[in-house]
Design a protein around this nucleic acid. Sequence first.
DNA 1: GCCTGTCTGTCAAAATTTCGACAATCCCGC
DNA 2: GCGGGATTGTCGAAATTTTGACAGACAGGC
Lengths: 223, 223
Amino acid sequence: MPHSEPVPAALRAALASDDWFAACPAALQDVLLRLGRMHPLAHGQSLFSRGGQADGLCCVTAGGLHIGALDAEGQPAELAYLEPYQWFGEIALIDGLPRTHDAVAEGGTRVLVVPRDPLVDWLDRHPAQWRELARLACRKLRVAFAVLEELAMLPLEERLQRRLRLLAQGYGSRESPRRRIRLGQEVLARMMGVSRQSVNKALKTLEARGVLRLHYGEIELLD
Amino acid sequence: MPHSEPVPAALRAALASDDWFAACPAALQDVLLRLGRMHPLAHGQSLFSRGGQADGLCCVTAGGLHIGALDAEGQPAELAYLEPYQWFGEIALIDGLPRTHDAVAEGGTRVLVVPRDPLVDWLDRHPAQWRELARLACRKLRVAFAVLEELAMLPLEERLQRRLRLLAQGYGSRESPRRRIRLGQEVLARMMGVSRQSVNKALKTLEARGVLRLHYGEIELLD
DNA sequence: GCCTGTCTGTCAAAATTTCGACAATCCCGC
DNA sequence: GCGGGATTGTCGAAATTTTGACAGACAGGC
């Protein structure tokens, strides 16, 4: 874990752009800001790794985080790409088990980390707030189920289109979807679990269909 | 919703075979039994459908439940197959949104349903117990993430093997895994999102490898 | 403005999967 | 013990995906 800094007060308004945080009672919002510390990460630097002990609840406030895992041969699979202001790490917070994934920074990145022990202490003194943590886990469960279903039912093009929409709205975090997605087709391919060539072909089809436009290192969603 | 019956007291010991229920405080266990009603279902009968309003937290106590969804052309995809004594329905309980899937009975089935409104009332009077609901959602999130990762990284044979182990231990519900799994290869194929023929070939490979033995309408796990 | 490393677009061969078909096998009710 | 419906095992053709390769396009540093 790199060095840490206090949380700037100005961050609160920005954090409210996340649906989950915005819907939390003020008391919980206060505690997250009060207990939280900012952790700057350089490109490629790891925030935590699979199997490690949970350090707390986290939120990306600048840059981006690749959430994924390496298989036996070191091939990376990407589960998600997180951008400001998405919260994560609630799984290990709730059940106390090791982290499920690796988290690696994309470019200069800043992460708000709320340390586990003081947060759990506070939650146990204000147990109604556990419901908010349940809400956060719940939202991810719905997304995960939707993705699992698409995998079984839809052709790659449809899946890609939906995944891009999902990325654009931060997996349900952002109300208004982002228009441009800065992700290489290589990364996108690892996310969908197919080859880069397949992703490229599907993207071309979607572009011809007027769904999106392709740029260098980024994708622009239309309609 | 079919007619309902009170919960037999003898059920409590059986329910404790589920890790989640067993780890819940006695107060919560009591309430689930006190508020719950038994719903008998005939083969093929639906307990609830995607998009419907949540009626409450549920637990299979006999038979089995196919959890899945139909796509536009009516092709079913199966997310999970639940057996005694697995709990489900916590997503809609926590966030109040519509059900994510269809639930259809396999053979004569009995489901314990704890109605949402009185349960939420009780939880709000004992808010520390929301943490237990979070734990339940959390366990499913870990399973879902594991399945998503396998999909991207592993060949069908490995995925099939892991899925069978998962089914054998009730998705983490049972401590001691079941030895035999009563599921047709057709259902298994819908679960894995591949054709029946592919599942058959993979199963044959696994059988030759000594991992399992195939029987009519069921699979026996070895080792 | 040039150079270099990265990203994109495309190709053909190889491997895999699906689809449609059909026979063999099994369970269950009569 | 017999029949009928469901499940399993297998095959070949068609469709799809992966793999490996390579040229062109782009961005950022110097």
